[in-house]
Design a binder for these strands. Structure first.
Length: 596
DNA sequence: TGCTCGACCA
Protein backbone atom coordinates (compact mmCIF):
# COMPACT_ATOMS: atom_id res chain seq x y z
CA UNK A 1 0.00 0.00 0.00
CA UNK A 2 1.35 3.43 -0.92
CA UNK A 3 1.98 5.84 1.89
CA UNK A 4 -0.60 8.28 0.51
CA UNK A 5 -3.25 5.57 0.29
CA UNK A 6 -2.44 4.47 3.78
CA UNK A 7 -2.69 8.07 4.90
CA UNK A 8 -6.18 8.48 3.46
CA UNK A 9 -7.55 5.30 4.97
CA UNK A 10 -6.05 5.65 8.43
CA UNK A 11 -7.74 7.50 11.26
CA UNK A 12 -6.20 10.64 12.64
CA UNK A 13 -4.85 9.14 15.82
CA UNK A 14 -2.90 6.41 14.07
CA UNK A 15 -1.90 8.79 11.29
CA UNK A 16 -0.30 11.05 13.85
CA UNK A 17 1.51 8.09 15.35
CA UNK A 18 2.75 7.04 11.91
CA UNK A 19 3.86 10.58 11.09
CA UNK A 20 5.73 10.75 14.34
CA UNK A 21 7.56 7.52 13.69
CA UNK A 22 8.24 8.54 10.09
CA UNK A 23 10.17 11.62 11.16
CA UNK A 24 12.38 9.71 13.57
CA UNK A 25 15.91 9.11 12.41
CA UNK A 26 17.05 5.63 13.34
CA UNK A 27 19.95 5.77 15.77
CA UNK A 28 20.57 2.10 16.18
CA UNK A 29 19.75 -0.87 14.05
CA UNK A 30 18.18 -2.86 16.87
CA UNK A 31 15.73 -0.05 17.82
CA UNK A 32 15.35 1.91 14.58
CA UNK A 33 12.36 4.05 15.60
CA UNK A 34 13.81 5.03 18.98
CA UNK A 35 10.60 3.76 20.60
CA UNK A 36 10.68 2.25 24.05
CA UNK A 37 11.22 -1.49 23.84
CA UNK A 38 7.82 -3.04 23.74
CA UNK A 39 6.57 -6.47 22.89
CA UNK A 40 4.51 -6.89 19.72
CA UNK A 41 1.52 -7.87 21.87
CA UNK A 42 1.62 -4.53 23.69
CA UNK A 43 1.85 -2.61 20.41
CA UNK A 44 -1.01 -4.59 18.90
CA UNK A 45 -3.21 -3.99 21.96
CA UNK A 46 -2.51 -0.28 21.70
CA UNK A 47 -3.54 -0.35 18.09
CA UNK A 48 -6.70 -2.37 18.84
CA UNK A 49 -7.75 0.27 21.32
CA UNK A 50 -7.02 3.04 18.83
CA UNK A 51 -9.08 1.26 16.17
CA UNK A 52 -12.07 0.93 18.54
CA UNK A 53 -11.75 4.56 19.64
CA UNK A 54 -12.13 5.53 16.00
CA UNK A 55 -15.01 3.20 15.28
CA UNK A 56 -12.90 0.85 13.14
CA UNK A 57 -14.33 -2.35 14.56
CA UNK A 58 -13.47 -4.61 11.62
CA UNK A 59 -9.86 -3.49 11.59
CA UNK A 60 -9.56 -4.11 15.33
CA UNK A 61 -10.94 -7.60 14.87
CA UNK A 62 -8.64 -8.37 11.96
CA UNK A 63 -5.60 -7.28 13.89
CA UNK A 64 -6.65 -9.37 16.88
CA UNK A 65 -7.21 -12.43 14.68
CA UNK A 66 -3.74 -12.02 13.22
CA UNK A 67 -2.04 -11.74 16.60
CA UNK A 68 0.13 -14.80 17.20
CA UNK A 69 0.37 -14.32 20.98
CA UNK A 70 -2.99 -13.15 22.30
CA UNK A 71 -2.91 -12.65 26.04
CA UNK A 72 -5.55 -11.66 28.60
CA UNK A 73 -4.94 -7.94 28.03
CA UNK A 74 -5.56 -8.24 24.29
CA UNK A 75 -8.73 -10.27 24.91
CA UNK A 76 -9.91 -7.66 27.43
CA UNK A 77 -9.20 -4.82 25.01
CA UNK A 78 -11.46 -6.57 22.49
CA UNK A 79 -14.23 -7.11 25.04
CA UNK A 80 -14.17 -3.52 26.29
CA UNK A 81 -13.83 -2.22 22.71
CA UNK A 82 -16.92 -4.06 21.57
CA UNK A 83 -18.78 -2.90 24.68
CA UNK A 84 -17.82 0.73 24.08
CA UNK A 85 -19.23 0.44 20.53
CA UNK A 86 -22.46 -1.09 21.91
CA UNK A 87 -21.70 -4.45 20.28
CA UNK A 88 -22.58 -6.24 23.48
CA UNK A 89 -23.23 -9.63 21.92
CA UNK A 90 -19.84 -9.61 20.18
CA UNK A 91 -18.22 -8.73 23.51
CA UNK A 92 -19.96 -11.67 25.15
CA UNK A 93 -18.94 -14.06 22.35
CA UNK A 94 -15.35 -12.81 22.77
CA UNK A 95 -15.49 -13.62 26.47
CA UNK A 96 -16.84 -17.10 25.80
CA UNK A 97 -14.13 -17.72 23.17
CA UNK A 98 -11.53 -16.56 25.64
CA UNK A 99 -12.79 -18.99 28.27
CA UNK A 100 -12.88 -21.77 25.67
CA UNK A 101 -9.26 -21.22 24.68
CA UNK A 102 -8.54 -21.44 28.38
CA UNK A 103 -4.81 -20.75 28.48
CA UNK A 104 -5.18 -17.45 30.27
CA UNK A 105 -7.33 -16.46 33.24
CA UNK A 106 -9.60 -13.42 33.10
CA UNK A 107 -8.46 -10.60 35.38
CA UNK A 108 -10.38 -7.81 37.15
CA UNK A 109 -10.26 -5.70 33.97
CA UNK A 110 -11.84 -8.55 32.01
CA UNK A 111 -14.65 -9.04 34.51
CA UNK A 112 -15.59 -5.37 34.76
CA UNK A 113 -15.63 -5.13 30.95
CA UNK A 114 -17.69 -8.26 30.37
CA UNK A 115 -20.12 -7.31 33.13
CA UNK A 116 -20.72 -4.05 31.35
CA UNK A 117 -21.49 -6.05 28.20
CA UNK A 118 -24.00 -8.17 30.19
CA UNK A 119 -25.60 -4.94 31.38
CA UNK A 120 -25.80 -3.80 27.74
CA UNK A 121 -27.46 -7.09 26.74
CA UNK A 122 -29.80 -6.75 29.74
CA UNK A 123 -28.92 -10.36 30.49
CA UNK A 124 -29.03 -11.19 34.16
CA UNK A 125 -28.25 -14.82 33.38
CA UNK A 126 -25.00 -14.01 31.56
CA UNK A 127 -24.18 -11.55 34.33
CA UNK A 128 -24.95 -14.20 36.93
CA UNK A 129 -22.51 -16.68 35.39
CA UNK A 130 -19.85 -13.96 35.32
CA UNK A 131 -20.57 -13.34 38.99
CA UNK A 132 -19.93 -17.02 39.73
CA UNK A 133 -16.66 -17.04 37.81
CA UNK A 134 -15.48 -13.79 39.38
CA UNK A 135 -16.21 -15.24 42.83
CA UNK A 136 -14.18 -18.33 41.99
CA UNK A 137 -11.27 -16.17 40.83
CA UNK A 138 -11.42 -14.07 44.00
CA UNK A 139 -12.33 -10.75 42.41
CA UNK A 140 -15.64 -10.25 44.20
CA UNK A 141 -14.77 -8.14 47.23
CA UNK A 142 -11.24 -8.05 45.83
CA UNK A 143 -11.65 -5.41 43.15
CA UNK A 144 -13.85 -2.33 43.55
CA UNK A 145 -14.22 -2.17 39.76
CA UNK A 146 -15.64 -5.68 39.59
CA UNK A 147 -17.93 -5.05 42.58
CA UNK A 148 -19.29 -1.84 41.05
CA UNK A 149 -19.78 -3.43 37.65
CA UNK A 150 -21.64 -6.34 39.28
CA UNK A 151 -23.82 -3.92 41.21
CA UNK A 152 -24.63 -2.01 38.03
CA UNK A 153 -25.36 -5.20 36.11
CA UNK A 154 -27.83 -6.47 38.74
CA UNK A 155 -29.42 -3.02 39.10
CA UNK A 156 -30.02 -2.86 35.34
CA UNK A 157 -30.93 -6.46 34.49
CA UNK A 158 -33.02 -7.72 37.42
CA UNK A 159 -36.69 -7.19 38.13
CA UNK A 160 -35.96 -6.00 41.65
CA UNK A 161 -33.03 -4.26 43.35
CA UNK A 162 -32.56 -7.21 45.72
CA UNK A 163 -29.35 -8.60 44.22
CA UNK A 164 -27.92 -5.13 43.62
CA UNK A 165 -28.45 -4.28 47.30
CA UNK A 166 -26.85 -7.58 48.35
CA UNK A 167 -23.76 -6.86 46.26
CA UNK A 168 -23.64 -3.28 47.57
CA UNK A 169 -23.82 -4.50 51.17
CA UNK A 170 -20.86 -6.81 50.63
CA UNK A 171 -18.51 -4.24 49.09
CA UNK A 172 -15.75 -3.91 51.73
CA UNK A 173 -14.85 -0.27 50.97
CA UNK A 174 -17.51 1.53 48.94
CA UNK A 175 -16.43 4.39 46.72
CA UNK A 176 -18.36 7.21 44.99
CA UNK A 177 -19.09 4.98 42.01
CA UNK A 178 -20.68 2.33 44.25
CA UNK A 179 -23.05 4.88 45.81
CA UNK A 180 -23.90 6.55 42.50
CA UNK A 181 -24.60 3.21 40.84
CA UNK A 182 -27.02 2.20 43.58
CA UNK A 183 -28.83 5.57 43.44
CA UNK A 184 -29.02 5.28 39.65
CA UNK A 185 -30.49 1.79 39.92
CA UNK A 186 -33.38 2.99 42.09
CA UNK A 187 -33.94 6.14 40.04
CA UNK A 188 -34.10 4.33 36.71
CA UNK A 189 -36.79 2.02 37.99
CA UNK A 190 -38.87 4.98 39.15
CA UNK A 191 -38.24 4.45 42.84
CA UNK A 192 -37.14 8.00 43.52
CA UNK A 193 -37.82 7.82 47.25
CA UNK A 194 -35.50 4.83 47.71
CA UNK A 195 -32.90 6.61 45.58
CA UNK A 196 -33.10 9.72 47.76
CA UNK A 197 -32.84 7.60 50.90
CA UNK A 198 -29.59 6.09 49.58
CA UNK A 199 -28.38 9.59 48.68
CA UNK A 200 -29.11 10.71 52.25
CA UNK A 201 -27.25 7.71 53.62
CA UNK A 202 -24.29 8.55 51.40
CA UNK A 203 -24.30 12.08 52.80
CA UNK A 204 -24.57 10.84 56.42
CA UNK A 205 -21.70 8.41 55.96
CA UNK A 206 -19.62 11.33 54.73
CA UNK A 207 -18.74 9.64 51.48
CA UNK A 208 -16.87 12.03 49.24
CA UNK A 209 -19.38 14.07 47.23
CA UNK A 210 -19.18 14.31 43.48
CA UNK A 211 -21.29 15.69 40.62
CA UNK A 212 -22.41 12.24 39.41
CA UNK A 213 -24.38 11.40 42.53
CA UNK A 214 -25.96 14.86 42.53
CA UNK A 215 -27.23 14.79 38.96
CA UNK A 216 -28.90 11.41 39.51
CA UNK A 217 -30.32 12.40 42.93
CA UNK A 218 -31.86 15.50 41.36
CA UNK A 219 -33.37 13.33 38.66
CA UNK A 220 -34.90 11.25 41.46
CA UNK A 221 -36.48 14.45 42.85
CA UNK A 222 -37.93 15.17 39.39
CA UNK A 223 -39.24 11.60 39.30
CA UNK A 224 -41.16 11.96 42.56
CA UNK A 225 -42.18 15.50 41.59
CA UNK A 226 -40.72 17.03 44.73
CA UNK A 227 -39.28 20.48 44.22
CA UNK A 228 -38.89 20.66 48.01
CA UNK A 229 -36.22 17.94 48.01
CA UNK A 230 -34.96 19.34 44.72
CA UNK A 231 -34.40 22.79 46.18
CA UNK A 232 -32.55 21.37 49.19
CA UNK A 233 -30.18 19.49 46.93
CA UNK A 234 -29.82 22.55 44.70
CA UNK A 235 -28.59 24.48 47.75
CA UNK A 236 -26.05 21.75 48.46
CA UNK A 237 -24.93 21.88 44.83
CA UNK A 238 -24.17 25.59 45.18
CA UNK A 239 -22.44 25.06 48.53
CA UNK A 240 -20.15 22.39 47.07
CA UNK A 241 -19.47 24.38 43.91
CA UNK A 242 -21.05 21.84 41.55
CA UNK A 243 -23.13 24.59 39.97
CA UNK A 244 -20.45 24.88 37.31
CA UNK A 245 -21.03 21.29 36.23
CA UNK A 246 -23.33 21.33 33.20
CA UNK A 247 -24.94 17.87 33.64
CA UNK A 248 -25.79 18.78 37.27
CA UNK A 249 -27.32 22.07 36.19
CA UNK A 250 -29.19 20.34 33.37
CA UNK A 251 -30.80 17.94 35.82
CA UNK A 252 -31.74 20.84 38.12
CA UNK A 253 -33.29 22.61 35.14
CA UNK A 254 -35.24 19.47 34.27
CA UNK A 255 -36.35 19.02 37.88
CA UNK A 256 -37.76 22.55 38.10
CA UNK A 257 -39.49 22.18 34.71
CA UNK A 258 -41.09 18.86 35.67
CA UNK A 259 -42.26 20.36 39.00
CA UNK A 260 -43.79 23.30 37.13
CA UNK A 261 -41.42 25.75 38.83
CA UNK A 262 -40.77 27.72 35.68
CA UNK A 263 -39.47 30.82 37.42
CA UNK A 264 -36.70 28.76 39.06
CA UNK A 265 -36.12 26.87 35.81
CA UNK A 266 -35.61 30.16 34.01
CA UNK A 267 -33.10 31.43 36.56
CA UNK A 268 -31.27 28.12 36.43
CA UNK A 269 -31.11 28.15 32.63
CA UNK A 270 -29.68 31.66 32.60
CA UNK A 271 -27.05 30.65 35.13
CA UNK A 272 -25.62 27.89 32.94
CA UNK A 273 -22.68 29.59 31.30
CA UNK A 274 -21.73 26.94 28.79
CA UNK A 275 -25.15 25.64 27.73
CA UNK A 276 -24.94 22.41 25.77
CA UNK A 277 -27.58 20.85 23.53
CA UNK A 278 -29.02 18.99 26.53
CA UNK A 279 -29.57 22.28 28.39
CA UNK A 280 -31.55 23.64 25.45
CA UNK A 281 -33.43 20.40 24.85
CA UNK A 282 -34.37 20.12 28.51
CA UNK A 283 -35.71 23.64 28.62
CA UNK A 284 -37.60 23.23 25.34
CA UNK A 285 -39.10 19.92 26.46
CA UNK A 286 -40.10 21.49 29.77
CA UNK A 287 -42.32 24.02 28.01
CA UNK A 288 -43.71 21.75 25.26
CA UNK A 289 -46.80 20.83 27.28
CA UNK A 290 -47.50 23.86 29.45
CA UNK A 291 -46.51 26.64 27.06
CA UNK A 292 -45.88 25.28 23.55
CA UNK A 293 -45.46 28.79 22.12
CA UNK A 294 -42.59 29.44 24.53
CA UNK A 295 -41.10 26.13 23.45
CA UNK A 296 -41.08 27.23 19.80
CA UNK A 297 -39.50 30.57 20.66
CA UNK A 298 -36.75 28.83 22.62
CA UNK A 299 -36.12 26.61 19.62
CA UNK A 300 -35.54 29.66 17.42
CA UNK A 301 -33.30 31.18 20.08
CA UNK A 302 -31.32 27.94 20.31
CA UNK A 303 -30.59 27.96 16.60
CA UNK A 304 -29.74 31.66 16.51
CA UNK A 305 -27.15 31.02 19.22
CA UNK A 306 -25.49 28.40 17.05
CA UNK A 307 -26.63 25.29 18.89
CA UNK A 308 -27.79 22.65 16.42
CA UNK A 309 -31.13 20.93 16.91
CA UNK A 310 -31.06 17.13 17.09
CA UNK A 311 -33.73 14.44 17.13
CA UNK A 312 -34.56 15.14 20.79
CA UNK A 313 -35.10 18.82 20.06
CA UNK A 314 -37.43 18.00 17.20
CA UNK A 315 -39.27 15.44 19.30
CA UNK A 316 -40.18 18.18 21.80
CA UNK A 317 -40.92 20.70 19.07
CA UNK A 318 -43.32 18.30 17.35
CA UNK A 319 -45.02 17.75 20.71
CA UNK A 320 -45.35 21.53 21.06
CA UNK A 321 -46.90 21.81 17.57
CA UNK A 322 -49.24 18.92 18.40
CA UNK A 323 -50.39 20.68 21.54
CA UNK A 324 -50.94 23.88 19.56
CA UNK A 325 -52.66 22.02 16.70
CA UNK A 326 -50.92 24.59 14.53
CA UNK A 327 -50.73 22.96 11.12
CA UNK A 328 -48.56 25.45 9.20
CA UNK A 329 -46.15 25.65 12.11
CA UNK A 330 -45.94 21.85 12.16
CA UNK A 331 -45.30 21.82 8.43
CA UNK A 332 -42.44 24.28 8.84
CA UNK A 333 -40.90 22.12 11.55
CA UNK A 334 -41.29 19.12 9.24
CA UNK A 335 -39.33 21.07 6.61
CA UNK A 336 -36.55 21.72 9.10
CA UNK A 337 -36.45 18.01 9.90
CA UNK A 338 -35.96 17.29 6.19
CA UNK A 339 -33.17 19.85 5.97
CA UNK A 340 -31.43 18.27 8.94
CA UNK A 341 -31.75 14.86 7.29
CA UNK A 342 -33.73 13.37 10.17
CA UNK A 343 -36.88 12.60 8.19
CA UNK A 344 -36.30 8.84 8.46
CA UNK A 345 -35.78 8.93 12.21
CA UNK A 346 -38.42 6.46 13.38
CA UNK A 347 -39.69 8.15 16.58
CA UNK A 348 -39.79 11.51 14.78
CA UNK A 349 -41.73 10.17 11.81
CA UNK A 350 -44.15 8.43 14.17
CA UNK A 351 -44.83 11.60 16.10
CA UNK A 352 -45.24 13.56 12.83
CA UNK A 353 -48.07 11.18 11.86
CA UNK A 354 -49.75 11.95 15.18
CA UNK A 355 -49.05 15.69 14.93
CA UNK A 356 -50.60 16.00 11.47
CA UNK A 357 -53.67 14.00 12.47
CA UNK A 358 -54.22 16.15 15.54
CA UNK A 359 -53.68 19.31 13.48
CA UNK A 360 -56.43 18.27 11.08
CA UNK A 361 -54.44 17.03 8.09
CA UNK A 362 -54.76 13.27 7.82
CA UNK A 363 -53.45 13.59 4.24
CA UNK A 364 -50.11 14.76 5.61
CA UNK A 365 -50.12 11.89 8.13
CA UNK A 366 -50.67 9.50 5.27
CA UNK A 367 -47.81 11.01 3.27
CA UNK A 368 -45.35 10.75 6.15
CA UNK A 369 -46.43 7.15 6.72
CA UNK A 370 -46.11 6.35 3.01
CA UNK A 371 -42.60 7.79 2.75
CA UNK A 372 -41.18 5.87 5.71
CA UNK A 373 -38.45 3.35 4.90
CA UNK A 374 -39.02 1.41 8.11
CA UNK A 375 -42.17 1.15 10.15
CA UNK A 376 -42.58 -0.28 13.61
CA UNK A 377 -45.77 -1.14 15.48
CA UNK A 378 -46.01 2.45 16.73
CA UNK A 379 -46.00 3.74 13.13
CA UNK A 380 -48.89 1.48 12.16
CA UNK A 381 -50.82 2.27 15.35
CA UNK A 382 -50.33 6.02 14.89
CA UNK A 383 -51.65 5.83 11.34
CA UNK A 384 -54.66 3.72 12.38
CA UNK A 385 -55.45 6.19 15.16
CA UNK A 386 -55.07 9.05 12.67
CA UNK A 387 -57.53 7.41 10.27
CA UNK A 388 -59.89 6.50 13.12
CA UNK A 389 -60.06 10.00 14.57
CA UNK A 390 -60.92 11.40 11.13
CA UNK A 391 -63.68 8.88 10.54
CA UNK A 392 -61.77 6.78 8.00
CA UNK A 393 -62.79 3.41 9.47
CA UNK A 394 -62.31 1.21 6.38
CA UNK A 395 -58.82 2.67 5.84
CA UNK A 396 -57.87 1.81 9.42
CA UNK A 397 -59.15 -1.73 8.97
CA UNK A 398 -57.22 -2.10 5.71
CA UNK A 399 -54.09 -0.88 7.48
CA UNK A 400 -54.50 -3.63 10.07
CA UNK A 401 -54.41 -6.26 7.31
CA UNK A 402 -51.36 -4.65 5.71
CA UNK A 403 -49.57 -4.54 9.04
CA UNK A 404 -50.14 -8.23 9.69
CA UNK A 405 -49.01 -9.03 6.14
CA UNK A 406 -45.81 -7.05 6.73
CA UNK A 407 -45.00 -9.40 9.59
CA UNK A 408 -45.93 -7.32 12.63
CA UNK A 409 -48.39 -8.89 15.05
CA UNK A 410 -50.96 -6.59 16.62
CA UNK A 411 -50.80 -5.89 20.35
CA UNK A 412 -53.49 -4.53 22.65
CA UNK A 413 -52.81 -0.90 21.66
CA UNK A 414 -53.28 -1.76 17.97
CA UNK A 415 -56.62 -3.43 18.73
CA UNK A 416 -57.76 -0.43 20.76
CA UNK A 417 -56.84 1.83 17.81
CA UNK A 418 -58.72 -0.27 15.27
CA UNK A 419 -61.73 -0.78 17.58
CA UNK A 420 -61.97 2.97 18.16
CA UNK A 421 -61.75 3.55 14.40
CA UNK A 422 -64.57 1.03 13.81
CA UNK A 423 -66.61 2.66 16.55
CA UNK A 424 -66.29 6.16 15.07
CA UNK A 425 -67.16 4.90 11.58
CA UNK A 426 -70.06 2.72 12.68
CA UNK A 427 -68.36 -0.52 11.56
CA UNK A 428 -69.90 -2.48 14.41
CA UNK A 429 -69.70 -6.05 13.13
CA UNK A 430 -66.22 -5.45 11.74
CA UNK A 431 -65.15 -4.21 15.17
CA UNK A 432 -66.72 -7.17 16.96
CA UNK A 433 -64.87 -9.60 14.71
CA UNK A 434 -61.60 -7.84 15.58
CA UNK A 435 -62.46 -8.25 19.25
CA UNK A 436 -62.95 -11.99 18.71
CA UNK A 437 -59.72 -12.22 16.70
CA UNK A 438 -57.82 -10.55 19.52
CA UNK A 439 -58.67 -13.27 22.02
CA UNK A 440 -58.89 -16.32 19.74
CA UNK A 441 -55.93 -15.84 17.41
CA UNK A 442 -53.60 -13.49 19.26
CA UNK A 443 -54.41 -14.71 22.80
CA UNK A 444 -54.50 -11.16 24.14
CA UNK A 445 -56.59 -10.77 27.29
CA UNK A 446 -58.77 -7.68 26.85
CA UNK A 447 -58.21 -4.86 29.35
CA UNK A 448 -60.81 -2.54 30.89
CA UNK A 449 -59.96 -0.04 28.15
CA UNK A 450 -60.56 -2.65 25.43
CA UNK A 451 -63.97 -3.51 26.90
CA UNK A 452 -64.78 0.20 27.10
CA UNK A 453 -64.06 0.41 23.33
CA UNK A 454 -66.34 -2.49 22.55
CA UNK A 455 -69.14 -1.13 24.79
CA UNK A 456 -68.73 2.19 23.00
CA UNK A 457 -68.87 0.39 19.63
CA UNK A 458 -72.14 -1.37 20.50
CA UNK A 459 -73.55 1.65 22.30
CA UNK A 460 -73.08 4.05 19.40
CA UNK A 461 -75.09 1.65 17.27
CA UNK A 462 -77.87 1.59 19.88
CA UNK A 463 -77.25 -2.06 20.81
CA UNK A 464 -77.69 -1.24 24.50
CA UNK A 465 -78.87 -4.71 25.51
CA UNK A 466 -75.83 -6.41 23.92
CA UNK A 467 -73.56 -3.86 25.56
CA UNK A 468 -75.09 -4.61 28.95
CA UNK A 469 -74.75 -8.36 28.40
CA UNK A 470 -71.12 -7.89 27.52
CA UNK A 471 -70.49 -5.95 30.72
CA UNK A 472 -72.11 -8.82 32.67
CA UNK A 473 -69.90 -11.35 30.87
CA UNK A 474 -66.64 -9.56 31.67
CA UNK A 475 -64.14 -11.74 33.60
CA UNK A 476 -63.45 -8.90 36.07
CA UNK A 477 -65.46 -6.09 37.64
CA UNK A 478 -65.97 -3.29 35.12
CA UNK A 479 -64.27 -0.03 36.06
CA UNK A 480 -65.54 3.47 35.53
CA UNK A 481 -64.27 3.74 31.94
CA UNK A 482 -66.54 0.82 30.96
CA UNK A 483 -69.54 2.29 32.76
CA UNK A 484 -68.81 5.72 31.32
CA UNK A 485 -68.99 4.23 27.81
CA UNK A 486 -72.24 2.48 28.71
CA UNK A 487 -73.82 5.59 30.25
CA UNK A 488 -72.76 7.59 27.20
CA UNK A 489 -74.61 5.07 25.01
CA UNK A 490 -77.74 5.19 27.19
CA UNK A 491 -77.71 8.97 27.05
CA UNK A 492 -77.20 9.11 23.29
CA UNK A 493 -80.09 6.77 22.65
CA UNK A 494 -82.48 8.26 25.20
CA UNK A 495 -82.41 5.21 27.44
CA UNK A 496 -83.57 5.75 31.01
CA UNK A 497 -81.14 5.72 33.92
CA UNK A 498 -81.33 2.06 34.72
CA UNK A 499 -79.82 -0.23 37.28
CA UNK A 500 -76.53 0.65 35.57
CA UNK A 501 -76.48 3.99 37.34
CA UNK A 502 -76.57 2.30 40.74
CA UNK A 503 -73.75 -0.03 39.70
CA UNK A 504 -71.73 2.97 38.62
CA UNK A 505 -72.34 4.78 41.88
CA UNK A 506 -71.31 1.70 43.89
CA UNK A 507 -67.85 2.06 42.32
CA UNK A 508 -67.57 5.58 43.75
CA UNK A 509 -65.85 6.88 40.60
CA UNK A 510 -63.39 9.73 41.02
CA UNK A 511 -63.96 11.20 37.58
CA UNK A 512 -66.44 14.04 37.79
CA UNK A 513 -67.43 13.48 34.14
CA UNK A 514 -69.42 10.39 35.07
CA UNK A 515 -71.49 12.30 37.64
CA UNK A 516 -72.08 15.08 35.14
CA UNK A 517 -73.38 12.51 32.63
CA UNK A 518 -75.61 10.96 35.28
CA UNK A 519 -76.87 14.39 36.37
CA UNK A 520 -77.80 15.22 32.78
CA UNK A 521 -79.55 11.87 32.38
CA UNK A 522 -81.58 12.39 35.56
CA UNK A 523 -82.46 15.88 34.35
CA UNK A 524 -83.70 14.49 31.04
CA UNK A 525 -86.04 12.20 32.98
CA UNK A 526 -87.16 14.99 35.26
CA UNK A 527 -85.63 13.36 38.36
CA UNK A 528 -84.51 16.64 39.82
CA UNK A 529 -83.63 15.36 43.32
CA UNK A 530 -81.23 12.79 41.88
CA UNK A 531 -79.79 15.40 39.59
CA UNK A 532 -79.12 17.71 42.53
CA UNK A 533 -77.35 14.88 44.40
CA UNK A 534 -75.08 14.28 41.40
CA UNK A 535 -74.22 17.98 41.14
CA UNK A 536 -73.34 17.97 44.85
CA UNK A 537 -70.93 15.09 44.28
CA UNK A 538 -69.35 16.95 41.36
CA UNK A 539 -68.86 20.02 43.56
CA UNK A 540 -67.51 17.97 46.45
CA UNK A 541 -64.88 16.43 44.16
CA UNK A 542 -63.61 19.98 43.81
CA UNK A 543 -62.51 19.29 40.28
CA UNK A 544 -62.59 22.51 38.38
CA UNK A 545 -64.17 21.96 35.03
CA UNK A 546 -61.78 23.03 32.33
CA UNK A 547 -63.60 24.95 29.64
CA UNK A 548 -63.63 23.36 26.19
CA UNK A 549 -61.22 25.41 24.14
CA UNK A 550 -60.98 25.87 20.38
CA UNK A 551 -58.07 26.94 18.24
CA UNK A 552 -58.10 28.78 14.96
CA UNK A 553 -55.02 29.44 12.92
CA UNK A 554 -55.19 32.61 10.80
CA UNK A 555 -52.12 33.99 9.02
CA UNK A 556 -49.56 32.12 11.19
CA UNK A 557 -51.28 33.27 14.34
CA UNK A 558 -53.09 30.82 16.59
CA UNK A 559 -56.23 32.13 18.28
CA UNK A 560 -57.59 30.22 21.23
CA UNK A 561 -61.07 30.84 22.64
CA UNK A 562 -63.91 29.38 24.67
CA UNK A 563 -67.62 29.57 23.89
CA UNK A 564 -68.78 33.18 23.77
CA UNK A 565 -65.26 34.61 23.78
CA UNK A 566 -63.52 35.97 20.70
CA UNK A 567 -59.97 35.12 21.81
CA UNK A 568 -58.72 38.39 20.34
CA UNK A 569 -60.07 37.41 16.93
CA UNK A 570 -62.69 39.38 14.96
CA UNK A 571 -65.39 36.89 15.77
CA UNK A 572 -68.06 37.98 13.27
CA UNK A 573 -66.51 36.26 10.20
CA UNK A 574 -66.09 33.10 12.29
CA UNK A 575 -69.80 33.04 13.11
CA UNK A 576 -70.60 33.77 9.48
CA UNK A 577 -68.54 30.77 8.25
CA UNK A 578 -70.02 28.60 11.02
CA UNK A 579 -73.52 29.54 9.90
CA UNK A 580 -72.70 28.77 6.27
CA UNK A 581 -71.27 25.38 7.26
CA UNK A 582 -74.40 24.59 9.28
CA UNK A 583 -76.69 25.42 6.37
CA UNK A 584 -74.52 23.34 4.05
CA UNK A 585 -74.76 20.32 6.35
CA UNK A 586 -78.54 20.61 6.61
CA UNK A 587 -78.75 20.75 2.80
CA UNK A 588 -76.55 17.66 2.51
CA UNK A 589 -78.75 15.73 4.95
CA UNK A 590 -81.81 16.74 2.94
CA UNK A 591 -80.17 15.64 -0.33
CA UNK A 592 -79.23 12.30 1.25
CA UNK A 593 -82.77 11.77 2.55
CA UNK A 594 -84.30 12.59 -0.82
CA UNK A 595 -81.97 10.06 -2.41
CA UNK A 596 -83.14 7.19 -0.17
C1' DT B 1 1.65 4.86 27.71
C1' DG B 2 -1.07 -2.54 26.36
C1' DC B 3 -7.07 -3.81 29.10
C1' DT B 4 -11.86 -1.98 33.90
C1' DC B 5 -16.91 0.76 37.05
C1' DG B 6 -21.12 5.70 37.97
C1' DA B 7 -24.70 11.22 35.93
C1' DC B 8 -28.28 15.12 32.94
C1' DC B 9 -32.55 15.99 27.93
C1' DA B 10 -36.42 12.40 24.53
Amino acid sequence: MSRQKLHNQTPLLIRNALDLTHNFKPQSKSNPLCLPQKSPAKLSTNLIKAYFNNGLIKQARQLFDEMPDRDVVAWTAMISGYTACERYNSAWVMFKDMMREGFDCPNAFTFSSVLKACKGMKSGSCGGSCHGLALKCGFVGGSIYVDNALLDMYATCCVSMEYACLVFGQIPVKNQVSWTTLITGFTHRDDGLAALEVFRQMYLEEAEQNPYSFSIAIRACAGVGSHTYGKQIHVLVIKLGFDLNVPVMNSILDMYSKCNCFHEAHTCFNEINEKDDISWNTFIAGYAKTDPMKSLHLFLQMESQGCAANCFTFSSIIAACTNLSALTCGQQVHCRIFKTGLEQNLPLANSLIDMYAKSGSVQDSRRVFGEMWFRDRVSWTSMMTAFGSHGYGPEAVELMTQMVNSGINPDMIVFIAVLTACSHAGLVDQGLSFFKLMTSKYKINPSQETYACVIDLLGRDGRIKEAYDMIRSMPFDPDESVWAAFLGACKAHGQPVTAAARQVLDLKPKRSGIYVTLANMYAAEGKWDDRAKMRDVVNSLGEKKVAGRSWLEVHDQVYSFVAGDGGGLHIEPVYWVLGALGRHMVQQIDVTREGT
